[in-house]
């Protein structure tokens, strides 16, 4: 079945210059492998379309049940240069949590 990522995860996002960092955290440890399987760097880049100009890099934090994404060239120049309202990428995590993922009903409810 397809559910929004927000069903199994929360997160927070911020900035490092023109790079947006998006942390995504499984609500339950058993959903961490689902994050690893479903939330790939390619899908993150496609989800935001032209908002992310560069590549997306993914880091794994199994100890927190979390993934950290670095999205390069995602903040319109970043910091003071950016002409975007979300120049610090504060809302990017909420935006990614709206992405649909594929999950077995059993994975969701067990």
């Amino acid at each position: 079945m397809r559910v929004p990522l927000s069903r199994i995860a929360h997160g927070r996002s911020g900035d490092k210059g023109d790079t947006s960092n998006i942390g995504i955290i499984a609500y339950e440890d058993r959903w961490y492998p689902v994050l690893v399987r479903e939330v790939t760097p390619e899908r993150v880049k496609a989800h935001f379309g032209s908002l992310i100009e560069g590549r997306v890099e993914r880091f794994e934090l199994p100890n927190l049940g979390a993934l950290n994404f670095l999205c390069y060239g995602a903040l319109g120049g970043g910091g003071t240069l950016s002409l975007r309202i979300d120049a610090q990428g504060k809302t990017m995590a909420a935006g990614l949590l709206g992405m649909e993922i594929e999950i077995d009903e059993r994975e969701l409810t067990d």
């Binding site: 929360h10 997160g11 927070r12 996002s13 911020g14 900035d15 490092k16 790079t19 960092n21 942390g23 955290i25 880091f59 934090l61 927190l64 049940g65 979390a66 950290n68 670095l70």
Partner: peptide, 12 residues
């Protein structure tokens, strides 16, 4: 956890 991930680069 949310704050641990805030403005994080390479976690290692």
């Amino acid at each position: 956890k949310e704050q641990l991930l805030y403005e994080l680069g390479d976690p290692q």
